[in-house]
Design a protein around this nucleic acid. Structure first.
Ligand SMILES: [Zn+2]
Ligand SMILES: [Zn+2]
Ligand SMILES: [Zn+2]
Ligand SMILES: [Zn+2]
Lengths: 148, 148
DNA sequence: TTAGACCTTAGAGTATAGTCTAAGGTCAAG
DNA sequence: CTTGACCTTAGACTATACTCTAAGGTCTAA
């Protein structure tokens, strides 16, 4: 099949497939007389493999390793694959924790602000982002704000 | 104070401060005879404001809006600031949910693999990333894998 | 006076993963 | 035999936020 067909069947775009080829992830089995890329069913399954891996959060570099394991399984061991997955789990967990901390901070920031149409003269958001000297941790200066 | 001092006191680098200046976020109050940037205490508090905003997860574009509110509070209303914070909360929550889904999928992927030194011939990670036709959702083909 | 720390600028490079364009070649159908 | 869909390439552009370099000027203290 030509690249457009592979794109349709894999859910990637032709552009992306050519880009992946440049990155060494997937190449057409053959070329037509007119130099069109021709892909096999094998190639389709590789394209889907890449897509699925990306969806799981793996980087192209990590996908490359998976592909090399997949290309020659007897030459690799389970640890090769699992190490990558485990590291990714750690990365994602850490990212989630970071975001959760950001979220808590954002809530603290946002909840104190009335969000109304009044002047931002005493807006607790702007105040809180300003020098912590003046940052209200719970409630003093900014009682003007609140649920008003 | 010169840029190096501001860098030290704000926790940003001189490079970053110049970059922020190019982006229109912060400019030195004056220049010395030798054209050195000279910053005031006001500038320091602005630099810290930016740093704090970035730490809260706001983009430079969003920080720019906060700065304009901060620069002329009476001209703005609380909603201006709160809208940004609320939207950021939504974005972060969505990102967290996405990552949690990825995490669940990663665990499913990783847990089924022994991670040992044996050949990857039947590695459930590689198998699962391959055609879903062969993807084991819970347990059949891949009993070879496991906690072995 | 000279070494070393600090400053200046424009502009290039880094990271990730695409996304798109220009200019042209190929192919099947009408 | 032409239209339109599809293909080719190299290379530029997008987004975000820095990060660094080169080549040079300034300042301070020994
Ligand atoms: Zn308010
Ligand atoms: Zn407010
Ligand atoms: Zn195993
Ligand atoms: Zn395995």
């Amino acid at each position: 099949m030509k690249i457009g067909e592979l794109a349709k069947q894999s859910g990637l775009t032709a552009h992306t497939l050519r880009f992946y080829e440049k990155q060494g992830l997937i190449s057409p089995s053959t070329r037509s007389q007119s130099n069109y890329r021709l892909y096999s069913q094998q190639d389709l399954s590789t394209a889907k493999f890449i897509k699925r891996s990306r969806t799981m959060g793996f980087s192209l570099e990590e996908v490359e390793v998976f592909l090399s394991i997949r290309a020659d399984k007897p030459a690799h061991i389970c640890a090769d694959a699992k190490d990558i997955a485990q590291q990714k789990i750690i990365d994602v967990q850490q990212k989630i924790e970071e975001l959760q901390q950001v979220l808590v901070a954002l809530h603290k920031l946002s909840d104190a602000c009335c969000g109304g149409g009044e002047s931002a003269e005493f807006c607790s958001i702007i105040d809180a982002l300003d020098d912590s000297e003046n940052t209200v941790t719970s409630n003093t200066t900014n009682i003007q704000e609140g649920v008003v």
